[in-house]
Design a protein around this nucleic acid. Structure first.
Lengths: 230, 230, 230, 230
DNA sequence: AATGAATGAGCTTTCATTCAT
DNA sequence: TATGAATGAAAGCTCATTCAT
């Protein structure tokens, strides 16, 4: 009825296939709508009724695609996590100096933070998940954290990054990036790419050992500053 | 122990005063319990019933001190904001170079973020407030942001900070600090002061103009800093 | 019994229609139960729980049909008002002398007052409604008052009613009728029709211009009137 | 402290007396405030807190004068009832024709209806009272009804009132009068006396045997009242 | 006689979820 | 697959009333 194109009548599988595809498309639509609403209003204030309304279906229909509200929330998070996993895999595969990998990570992570699913990673509260899902989320968060620290440690080891405490540095960098998920507006003045670029620069300029940089930012400077502050 | 001084037995004011004090103390206790619970479980999952239970009173008793749940939430936020306003006023009064002020701001802000009321500033959702209160909160957030940008701009103007985009730099720094409110655990490995020191270093080391920097800061210092800071 | 006509078994509309009908019937049932309970116990003492119980459903089920308790109250009132509007329209359409119209109005109004929805008009308190609905109610009350006064004024003008102050006369008549809503019991000694007849006589016998009246309203007539009117 | 006047120091009884008087005055003040508020907002919406506030005392202080909210409500009603009982006793004592007594009753009752305590008789709901008090109220209502009917029957018997059904006639008259309690506003266009006069005329002009009436109710009288009204 | 504080009881409302169709 | 209807659970809030002082 709706097509000839990809699904010819001859195959008995095609309708099945197309039906499955249709189903997946609807599932995705639910997720897109849900994540948007959850971000817009907050998970608790957002109701499944409104999710359904925006999709022009009724609330119980959602239960064909998801087990419940929490399931939807978890899936939103999972989609964001998937993207992070993907580009981390890519960065790992590509190799390079620690600083190099860190810069790629920052850029990619910043860009993800400007998307709905990316913001899910930091705007949703794991305590709204079942214990089982919550554990998955916390494990993933720790994993991301480890990745940050590892790239930093790698950089220190390979000389591309000056000596510093990987743990704290990771906190500084990741916090800065995570916060993007809280303030970024798609219709704001800056593009996601521009932000990603800026953050990459800002967050690494103090770390790199380089001829240029060396002059500028040696660890030395730290002393004065802390002394004078208080 | 507490008496003799202002209130002898003969004074009719004593009971009244003590009542007042008791009242304020109770109000504070409610707030402390509430902010703790709100942070622990999230505002929506936390119920007034549990707040009351932890205080060994009943739910309606809370209404002697607050108009309702939202009122409590707003007060938590307000107490945090008060602290921020206070130290910003202090920094402004003390003066100094832009970099100097920025470093003080970072340290103080980081420390506040490790307290319950401080975390309130970034962990609670303004959309849970009435429109009126929400506006107050958003205005305060903008004001803090302006302060960050201003100190940076001041620093650029007075030469203590190298050229950079104050807006983005403020985002980077503030984001990093705000995130502390999300991960800091009082019983964690690092003290609030140590964290504040570290963040001050990390977040300004890329900003200071080079010549100055070189002399001042040796790597060694970092270790000391956490201890020697206070 | 109810079918064949518009809906044969083949029609896909039938189930939908029947669903719709079922829904309206249930809505009506809720209203009937609610108005009865509200009159029996008073709006404030009556709880939605008891409304639901009498309908053998649970409280939240009521929210499928109404927005809340106040909504139900308003609908009860509206149904009563509808009846009043209807018969006033009929009287206006039929025309006749002022006295004639007034008598019809009194009879119809009296009868409505003996019904649950009619009593709603005078037993419920507009202050229990939202401001918006309250205004609607007050406007309608004023409109009824104006109708009483107008018929009286018409009667004075066309000579069917002796000279009198329409405003006060309307107060006397309407008050008398409204009070029916407070004392009438369906299982009482007098039927609604009998009461309506009596009130029509009593409330107009002093108004008619004497010459006419003397002929018209012999005691005998009273008996006939209740029969002949309808 | 507050006086010398009525209570000289010499009598040990005086202070006691004056204290009792003060107490009674306060009790009365509570009642006046309460009845006003109850009429203004409705018994259920009105809170003891607001009653207390208007009296510049606190809620529990009310319990020194009354057993509770219901007690206050009952007392309000009782004060109104007292006035009705009083003037009925007066009318009975004075004697006269049935019509005469009825007219006096109507006038006095109408005037009472324009007072707060009078309106209490018809605006408050006996179902808000304890069963015991409720019975008292219902008995009193029946008694008033009987009085109306009796005067009418007396009038029929003594020839001052034409033949009619005393029961229905009483309903008509009493309803009309009771309704005054629902619409009268102290600051309205008409004075209580004017209303009482009008109602007396309107509600009896159809009852009096014609010969009598013609003499009794001259147009002049009617004219004055209605003219002055607007 | 009056107060601050606290309580118990109750009500409306919301919402995720289930079920028969 | 989708819907209308219904439910269970729970939460916030209000208020009359009590009690210790």
């Amino acid at each position: 009825m709706d097509a000839r194109g990809p699904s010819s009548d001859s195959s008995p599988w095609m309708p099945f296939e197309s039906r499955r595809r249709a189903r997946d498309e609807k599932r995705d639509a639910v997720l897109r709508t849900a994540v948007h609403l959850f971000l817009e209003q907050g998970y608790h204030r957002a109701t499944l009724n409104e999710v359904a309304e925006r999709l022009n279906i009724t609330k119980p229909a959602l239960y064909n695609y998801f087990r419940g509200k929490e399931d939807i929330l978890f899936e939103c998070w999972a989609l964001g996590q998937e993207r992070v996993d993907d580009f981390i895999a890519g960065i790992d595969a590509a190799g390079g100096t620690g600083l190099n990998k860190l810069r790629k990570l920052i850029r990619a992570y910043a860009e993800v933070m400007t998307t709905d699913y990316g913001a899910s990673l930091v705007r949703f509260d794991p305590r709204d998940l079942t214990e089982k899902n919550s554990r998955v989320v916390r494990a993933a968060k720790r994993s991301i954290d480890r990745t940050f620290r590892k790239y930093i440690a790698d950089g220190i080891a390979d000389g591309s990054i000056g000596p510093c405490d990987p743990k704290m540095t990771a906190f500084v960098i990741a916090g800065s990036l995570n916060w993007i998920g809280h303030w970024f507006q798609r219709d704001g003045a800056m593009s996601a790419e521009a932000i990603a670029g800026e953050f990459t620069e800002r967050l690494t300029e103090g770390l790199a050992v380089k001829s240029t940089r060396r002059v500028a930012s040696t660890p030395a400077k730290r002393k004065k500053s802390s002394g004078g502050t208080r």
